[in-house]
Amino acid sequence: MKTQRLVSLCTAVLAAGAFTACTDNDSASGDAIEVTSTNDECIVSVEEAPSGTLTFNVSNEGDKPTEFYLLGSDEQQIVGEVENIGPGLERKMVVTASEGDYFTSCKPGMTGDGIKAPFTVTHGD
């Protein structure tokens, strides 16, 4: 009985944690931003997006596992990250971003400084 109570507690905590932190997959502005990571390129479909919830669909067309980051204007602070994007996979990264200057970054092979490009978040609605 003790176990059951504990288990249901765990489930509840996990559920609450996950759900309250859930964000809408599709931002108000509509479509997700497409990112294509290859061994030496990081192609982002747009250079700016309205503030709010941003969804990046990152696909790996290289042959090494890759990671994708949204970095702050200092190119260091991590705003969002998705790891373990194996070759041939597409993974989703959801972040809430306010107006400002950012950098996108792909990290093929999971090492090094990454392939960075500036990204602007404009004032939403």
């Binding site: 996990l14 996950a18 932190a21 859930c22 969002g80 989703k92 972040v95």
Partner: peptide, 28 residues
């Protein structure tokens, strides 16, 4: 139990209308 919860949430976040924010994922 852990496998079921993980796969369940994983499917929900992948196919469902909602995604897990980066902050929540890191905190978890």
């Amino acid at each position: 139990l852990a496998v079921a919860i993980s796969l369940g949430f994983g499917a929900l976040l992948t196919y469902g209308p909602r995604g897990l924010s980066f902050e929540a994922q890191e905190a978890l």
